[in-house]
Design a protein around this nucleic acid. Structure first.
Lengths: 337, 337
DNA sequence: CTGAAAGCGCTAACAG
DNA sequence: CTGTTAGCGCTTTCAG
């Protein structure tokens, strides 16, 4: 803690606390000369205002929370980067919380935000989250909530998402055009809207091409790496094995590649692989990986922009904001280049 | 903001504010029955204490800052994950700030921490940082600082690092054993201690093997991707080209692989490649990448642990804490497997 | 065991 | 243009 507060500063200047406070925020009420003196002495004494005293009085924290399932993930880390950039620009502070895909943790974290700690919340929900009372509690407490990437459709809050349905459809079309007939679809949670949309895109693309979706090829993985290995090995060992794979989750790509190597399956000859992913190394993988890449950085920036507008502008119906920033298909060798 | 504060809660309970406050923190002064009633009603009314009022009064924020150059990076994102895990366990909040390798930003961010916003700081300095007044200012303001990964040797603060010198030496030894004679060393900043240590390990290993280090093979890259491409292309096009590369920076691996492909250089036949990296995709690259992998997650956890101890224990000389958690060499195909 | 009251550092309304 | 003052919501003596 600094030794010096506004009172000490005022005393040093022979001014009242009120005058100093106004001078520091460049109020029109204060003369230029006084402002200059105040700033000068403040600097000399290394005066720094106590943010929490200010927050308490103004009922505004200049802080936002970012709640994500995971940070060691190329999508979320890029999104956070976008958020942080805008926050720094606007003079806001960013609290980061991880849910590890747990609804219980998510709820526990959000319940702490009803008390003024943050002016707003950016969230990508956990894969377990279906009930949304914890989120609505914030909205009704005048803490704006903006979903990014993983939203909940029914909840009345701003949503910055990508075109998951279309991407699922496009990914599937691409594999079909490359000759796949039996395509497996990998996900980690049936609850996530992004997953259901991608999967619906997948199913519809299959149906539109008169192709059958085998239930064995809708593969639900978990958060446990060992179990995922087991599940994926089984899928790839089936006698009637798929000739194409769409992974809706980035972290499944490593096991898929690894298991293919073990089973001596050639990508793309035996199996074409496409992944929803933001990996910067996609094009130097062996073989280079065809991806649907989300605009992570832009989504983060956009989500933050909407949130700050919601925090700062009254009469702005941020809840109605529903932006869809398209993802992009990058065709590489894993689907035949 | 919630409608309900401790005063309203006290009124509802027909108790004084003081009693309620003590009951809420389970003070021994309060009877079991009263505590029960307070908790019950608090829950019913969704009472949540205002953290900033509490911080103001207690002069403690239960918040720490994490300042890193970048977050879309597998080392830093894993370290942050480790930090966040410990923080959640201890009931602390984590503010994240990015410096984008800029000293000016780093200073600006840290200058805001002299005022009670955070109880402590975890920092990995920018590649431009050599002066350390901004860091010492915090230490002397009783805000403990713990360096992780990128420390500054001369500064009196706790340091959680990895064995950079040894790793540089070991990496070089490995390439030499695999037959390399002309090894190039890539970095992004001469100022970073981690870099100078790795490089010294490299140089000493070369000298110890009676090998010459060509100045053209000490390659200083930047933060600009285009420029890096230019620089690296030039290096790999030299007539007297290196037969081994050590990249001390993860993000240079993509351009190295890409340029090798363009120049039709075979890894590992023409050129052996080793990278300091935490990439989860290292072993599915083409070819799989030999890495020196830092214990990012553990370093984050350790740094946070030391910081919280420094924050909570008086008479703990955290400044003397100087932990070195070793990195590990993973030998893969890019150096001949 | 419970209550009263001072005050953390700052802001903003109001008075001069 | 500058000063005075009443809190923001909570914690913590100290008194009973």
């Amino acid at each position: 803690m600094p030794e010096i507060n506004i009172r000490a500063l005022a005393k040093e200047l022979n001014l009242s606390i009120g005058t100093v406070s106004k001078a520091l925020k460049d109020s029109y009420e204060i003369s230029a000369e006084t402002k200059r003196r105040v700033l000068e002495v403040a600097k000399k004494l290394h005066y720094a205002p106590n943010p929490y005293a200010s927050s308490l009085r103004r009922k505004k924290s200049n802080t936002i929370a970012v709640v994500v399932p995971e940070v060691a993930d190329s999508y979320f880390s890029q999104a956070i980067k976008g958020i942080e950039e805008i926050a720094q620009l606007k003079g806001y502070h960013v609290l980061v919380y991880l849910t590890y895909e747990s609804y219980a943790r998510e709820k526990q974290i959000l319940d702490e935000f009803t008390n003024g700690r943050v002016d707003g919340l950016l969230i990508s929900v956990s894969s377990e989250t279906c009930s949304t009372g914890h989120i609505e509690a914030l909205n009704s407490n005048k803490v704006p909530v903006v979903f990014f990437d993983r939203a909940i459709d029914e909840t009345d809050a701003a949503k910055i998402t990508t075109n998951d349905y279309d991407s699922g459809y496009e990914a599937t079309r691409h594999l079909i055009e490359r000759g796949c007939r039996k395509i497996a679809y990998l996900s980690i949670s049936n609850l996530l809207v992004i997953n259901t949309k991608r999967m619906m895109g997948f199913r519809n693309a299959m149906t539109d091409s008169k192709l059958h979706v085998d239930d064995n090829n809708i593969v639900n993985c978990s958060n446990d790496d060992n179990e995922n290995n087991r599940i994926l090995t089984e899928v790839l060992k089936q006698k009637n094995r798929a000739d194409g794979i769409i992974s809706s989750v980035e972290k499944l790509i490593t096991p898929v590649y690894t298991i293919c190597k073990q089973l001596k399956l050639q990508i793309p000859a035996d199996l074409k692989v496409l992944c929803f992913s933001n990996l910067s190394t996609a094009h130097i993988l062996n073989p280079s990986l065809t991806t649907i890449t989300q605009p992570a950085f832009d989504m983060g920036k956009m989500a933050a922009t909407v949130l700050f507008k919601a925090v700062e502008k009254r009469n702005y119906n941020w809840q109605d904001e529903n932006l869809v920033i398209p993802s992009k298909l990058y065709i590489r060798d894993s689907t035949g280049g």
